[in-house]
Design a protein around this nucleic acid. Structure first.
Lengths: 332, 332
DNA sequence: CTGTTAGCGCTTTCAT
DNA sequence: ATGAAAGCGCTAACAG
């Protein structure tokens, strides 16, 4: 691998000149530009980005910390960010936090230590306070799927309360009264927001929230199954299940069918996220659209605007969920 | 951010001593260790990994180049690799190649330029020759989902031929004779391997391959739909469709139902990959298991063994597909 | 066992 | 417009 020294020697100029043409500095003569470029080509020169990063304290890299690397939700998010960064000539460094506090902290440190110009965070375990403090550090951060008032402008979030409300209202409008709810882990803010939206809708329709028909899951398919089995065991009547995400909904659907009940005839069901596969379930799952890809792209755009000074971009922070009505709900 | 100088000053030792305790060198007195560690803690010192990487030419980072960041297949792969690396204290730097030659090359250069200790590749557009040449460079590479004889030991691949064979044999054993095939892009090796396996099974059963019932898709859901519509337009009889992956199979299922045909009564269908969602389709999709997560983990283990000298590990390169029989096929 | 001294490859003042 | 020189923070011989 040729270094900048060899390029300079071959071109018969100094290091600085090579550096200048590499970085498109103004005030470089056309002649130097040409001769240096020729030398670079001849040597197949590629700048060492580690050295560059050490000297300049920049890296053209954005760190991304996400809970998991698999799953439709995170996949769409990563894809959305990467595509925006790529078109801007920036790179993504991706790592996973596994919803564990120590792992999330370590992930952030890793990204900071690699001189990322900014970091995009989707974390569950870290406290608001930690993130607020982090935002005061020298590496700018952006937070997805979480609304922290103090760093409001750096947050990109869904109105989860509205989402929970919409789902439940939809169910209620179809005449359901005995409604089960399979929730995500209560430590997550989006989970509780959705749940509170749910409760608000219930209240509006004069229906009491029933702890007996409430199950706390993990957002994973398995816990959708477990949730249904748990509910069924209680022998309490219910005509609809609201699931806090699509994966649990698909697990729930399976379990319901395994118990010889039909969807939506014996039990209606609604999910959350509008993952790609919901359209391929049978029946097609009614759900709430979570525009994660748009949000992910927006977070990348924020960085392009605020870190790399692309001023043309217009940023919005809050995103709105919408109901996607399909086949998994029937009228009572 | 404190530097190694400040730590050395506070501890009253030289740089080298600090460096030595950081890197767990032998021949460091217990006393120095303690005093240096105390100084590090007091200053909240974190080594600058960029500087370290520049000086040492190592990074404890593994580069991963994958076609896409979303989708069940790539998600499982990334997850599998990351979990192995994490437990070994190594980090993943992930980027996407989008099945485009120039993008794949740029991705590789990016990873090399960041001093990755090794690179894991899942690429479609790059030629065997390019990869062979690359493997002679100074950054070790590992290739997933591709078998290149010359760099055999660095490849982790499925017996796609067998997979294609198994799928078709299964269909044939159920008595089908008019069999449609929705393929992936023919430029991909796994695609043609599967197709050749398919043809072999046909031959064994004395059935001729019918170009009219053959459709080249993209491995995306949409093209499963398009494939079915294309086939239906021809008005030729067929009782089963073999899809080269599950996503196209799910698209095909939807299209079939949209045309008022029942699965498997009017048309049997089989997929490939055994993606998580196939179990939640209706009917549950019969498919061929692709142990991508195991393969991904194995590729990571190869690196731990060969690059980081963890000799205990046993490596295998070829993986075997298995048939997963579910509900989407009926007897003729 | 510890300290000194060169770098790693590039950026960035500061002169000229 | 160009060059010289001083780092960026760390590692790694080499002495001692």
């Amino acid at each position: 691998m040729a270094t900048i020294y060899e390029v300079a020697a071959l071109a018969g100029v100094s290091l600085s000149s090579v550096s200048r043409v590499m970085n498109n500095h103004p005030h470089v003569s056309e002649k130097t530009k040409i001769i240096v470029n020729a030398a670079m080509k001849e040597l197949g020169y590629r700048p060492n980005s580690v050295a560059r990063s050490l000297a300049s304290k920049r890296s053209d890299c954005i760190g991304i910390l996400v809970s998991e690397l698999h799953g439709p939700f995170y996949g769409d998010m990563l894809s959305g960010i990467e595509s925006e960064l790529r078109t801007a000539g920036k790179h993504a460094i991706i790592t996973a936090g596994h919803s564990d506090e120590a792992t999330e902290k370590a992930g952030i440190d890793f990204l900071i230590d690699r001189n990322c110009d900014a970091i995009i965070l989707l974390v569950d375990a870290l406290s608001d306070d930690y993130l607020i403090k982090l935002s005061k550090g020298s590496t700018p951060i952006v937070v997805i799927n979480r609304h922290i008032t103090e760093i409001d402008k750096n947050c990109f979030y869904l109105d989860n309360f509205l989402g929970g409300y919409l789902a439940t209202k939809h169910i209620l409008e179809y005449g359901h009264k005995d409604i089960a709810y399979i929730s995500g882990p209560l430590m997550k803010q989006d989970t509780t927001d959705r749940l509170n939206g749910h409760k608000k809708a219930l209240t509006e329709f004069g229906i009491e929230f029933n702890e007996e028909l409430f199950y706390v899951g993990t957002y994973l398919i398995e816990s959708g199954k477990e949730g249904v089995n748990h509910l069924l065991k209680k022998q309490l009547p219910f005509t609809a299940i609201i699931c806090a995400n699509d994966e649990m909904a698909s697990g729930a659907m399976k379990s319901i069918r395994d118990n010889d009940m039909a969807i939506p005839d014996d039990c209606s069901i609604i999910g959350f996220d509008n993952s790609f596969f919901t359209e391929y379930l049978h029946p097609q799952l009614t759900t709430v659209n979570y525009p994660i890809k748009d949000m992910a792209k927006m977070s990348a755009l924020w960085i392009l605007k605020n870190i790399y000074n692309n001023n043309k971009l217009i940023i919005k922070n809050e995103f709105t969920p919408t109901l996607v009505s399909r086949e998994s709900i029937r009228s009572i």
